[in-house]
């Protein structure tokens, strides 16, 4: 549904994105993840046909964004960072306006608006003036605007920014519900957001893709070696030394009463020897468990690695 290759955008001499390469299949929900200023919004603006790229090709729903921007726009629903709503308009009038701009035929107009209102939970406010609504409702009106013409592709730029936790969960559920019917790209700099809604993530940092994979695969891939933690009552130095001497142990770090034990890739079979060493040195073992690298750490690892090289 979306194909991007060699995509670059220069602002003067500064490259906002360089040489992006990715593919998104129909019905997928993909998250763009990256710190602020990584080039997420730029990429999205190019995909909507709004902004031309400096180099490279992007095709959305089979149309080139540069050669046929109007055809691309017909197939895309876009929610910018700030929802493009007119504060003086009534919700349903606004949605009907957005639908007409997106060429929804007159006889289907009412249905399209009703459906968008229903899907985004705006029924109770449909006759109210947008300017009087809370930020959460305004965001939903923005989302309804992107949905109203039933586009093949939905591009959502930070759809939950500025919402309260309850509203965030509602919007996430809503986006998850779109899978299959629409291809969705959403951007975020918040990890739980992406883990909660997306099937696949593309991590962007400084205008380049640093990783793209499913969430599970990305987490496991990043677990270089195996990391365990050992909670003890008394982390005495002799005991720590004896754990260090267990074959297969790469290194041991002490954080208060917690020992972080990193094993070599073939050291997984030595776990009982570690516990044995700890018990023999009378450290008072409380807990021994595998340390899971959260996506947050993966993200940090990816983006800081990039910064170092």
């Amino acid at each position: 549904m979306i194909e991007v290759s060699g995509l670059s955008k220069l602002y003067g001499p500064r490259a906002a994105i360089s040489n992006l390469e990715f593919k998104i299949e129909a019905g997928e929900i993909v998250g763009f993840l990256g710190p602020n200023g990584a080039g997420k919004s730029t990429t999205m603006k190019i995909l909507t046909g709004f902004m031309p790229a400096s180099a490279g090709i992007a095709r959305v729903a089979g149309f080139d964004v540069f050669d046929e921007p109007v055809a691309v726009k017909r197939n895309v629903g876009y929610l910018p960072e700030i929802p493009p709503v007119y504060p003086e308009m009534v919700v349903e009038d606004y949605l009907s306006y957005a639908a007409r701009l997106h060429e929804v035929p007159k006889n289907k107009l009412k249905n399209a608006v009703d459906r968008a209102i229903e899907r985004t939970g705006l029924t109770q406010v449909r006759k109210r003036i947008i300017g009087n609504l809370s930020k959460g409702f305004q965001q939903r009106v923005g989302l309804a605007q992107a949905l109203v013409h039933e586009p093949k592709v939905l591009i959502l730029d930070e759809p939950t920014v500025g919402l309260d936790p309850v509203q965030i969960i509602e919007i996430r559920e809503l986006i998850k519900g779109l899978a299959g019917q629409h291809t969705v790209i959403l951007s975020s700099h918040i990890l739980p957001e992406v883990t909660a809604t997306c099937q696949r993530i593309i991590v962007i940092n400084k205008g380049q893709i640093v990783a793209q994979d499913s969430i599970e695969r990305l987490t496991t891939r990043m677990r270089q070696g195996l990391l365990f933690h050992l909670d003890v009552k008394d982390p005495n130095p002799a005991g720590v030394d004896s754990i260090r001497n267990v074959p297969g142990v790469k290194q041991v770090d002490i954080e208060g009463n917690r020992l972080l034990v990193e094993l070599l890739p073939d050291g997984a079979g030595q776990r009982d020897r570690i516990v044995e060493a700890a018990v023999l040195s009378k450290m008072g073992v409380l807990e021994f468990a595998a340390e899971k690298l959260s996506l947050e750490e993966v993200f940090l690892q990816l983006t800081t690695q990039e910064g170092n090289t």
Partner: peptide, 14 residues
């Protein structure tokens, strides 16, 4: 100013 121009510029309009 209100960032609503994006609505027009990303709709299938010339």
């Amino acid at each position: 100013k209100m960032q609503t121009l994006q609505l027009l510029l990303t709709a299938p309009l010339t």
